[in-house]
Write a protein that binds this DNA or RNA. Structure first.
Lengths: 200, 200
DNA sequence: GCCAGCTACCGAACAGGCTCCGAACAAGGT
DNA sequence: ACCTTGTTCGGAGCCTGTTCGGTAGCTGGC
């Protein structure tokens, strides 16, 4: 719903004041700002702004104007489970979720979150307890970090490289862990790692 | 629900005090700060702050005010600049922000985001280009990862350890980088690292 | 032109919240 | 038992927001 000229002036003043003080102006401060002699004028303007949805207020409370919350571009993604080298994905109970920065994911694609267990990717700066954001898809480029299922047994996070003879190498990032080399037919990609979240 | 001027002043004092001491002020300390002669005034203000959801308290417990956990799924934080070993913080233009999972930060405290440049913390699994979430405060515990300013020259991200003789050691996590040992007076903490975000 | 409806404004009276006080009571810790 | 800390009650003045009745200008439709 559009604003009148006067209403926009008042709305701008509210924004300016709240941004500057972190609390809303009183009716009397608004009255002075615009040179009114009656608070009823201020009251009516704020009522109209509220009716049009530009502000919210509480009845009979001081300095209670606030702006309606705008929808944040942040996406809660399901935390599907824990993944480790050589171990299957271990489901977590409930429908736990973790909110992911909207900047991290491309809209229109399925994503999920896994908790990393173990140090098999330590040389890629992924440590035990980190959360990785995964773009769910079935194919991956050479060298991408993937969630891979080997013969429907073990879900692991590894870097994927294609070798001669239609074989693939799942390369960990830890000198103490050996790479896995299998026929391409036995390896299924379940997603590509696109982000990482760590809490200290 | 918005605050009045007085309520915000008291809330700011609570934040400042808790940030500094790691425990809440007593009613009497608040009373002195604002020059009241009755504790009832303090009590009423804290009750109002609790009613509006800005603090939580336990009935009849000393120094029990705390800040409620954030309910919002994600909070946009300002990206203040880039930090590297031995280099000052380099400001980024504009007011860039990065959305952070609400689970990562304690509400009621100032946070910001920095982009990490260089590999000086590689053995702590922080790599070039990562974003770190920083809780802005002036003090840190032994062993915490901090943003430190040495003689107002160089802002670095290091782990902080206290040494004998009122000196502090700023310990990198890279065998090729030497630790910095300085008088405590010359080192100022600008924040503590509480989270990490990486995009592939 | 005339009326209806909307915006913009005023003044005064009213009601309740906000901010503060002092004193007495309750619970915990030392 | 004493001190510190938080709780509750009654009361006060001021600050703030609410409501009502009224004036004025502007716009579009009949």
């Amino acid at each position: 719903m559009p604003l009148t000229k006067r209403q926009k002036q008042i709305l701008d003043y509210l924004k300016w004041f709240i941004d500057r003080h972190d609390y809303a102006p009183s009716f009397d401060e608004i009255r002075q700002e615009f040179g009114y002699t009656s608070l009823a004028t201020v009251h009516e303007h704020l009522s109209n702004l509220e009716r049009k949805g530009y502000i919210r207020r509480s009845y009979r409370e001081s300095r209670s104007v606030e702006f309606p919350p705008d929808v944040e571009p942040s996406i809660p993604l399901p935390l599907l489970g824990t993944v480790a080298a050589g171990m299957p994905i271990e489901a977590v109970e409930d429908n736990e979720t973790l909110s992911i920065p909207g900047e991290m994911i491309r809209s229109g694609f399925n994503h999920y979150v896994l908790r990393v267990s173990g140090d098999s990717m330590i040389d890629e700066q992924i440590r035990d307890g980190d959360h990785i954001v995964v773009n769910a898809r079935e194919t991956a480029e050479d060298g991408e970090m993937v969630i891979a299922l080997v013969r429907d047994e073990a879900a692991t996070v590894k870097k994927l490289y294609r070798e001669d003879g239609n074989r693939v190498r799942l390369q960990p990032a830890n000198e103490n862990v050996e790479p896995i080399i299998e026929d391409a037919a036995d390896v299924r990609v379940r997603g590509v790692v696109v982000g990482l979240i760590r809490q200290y």
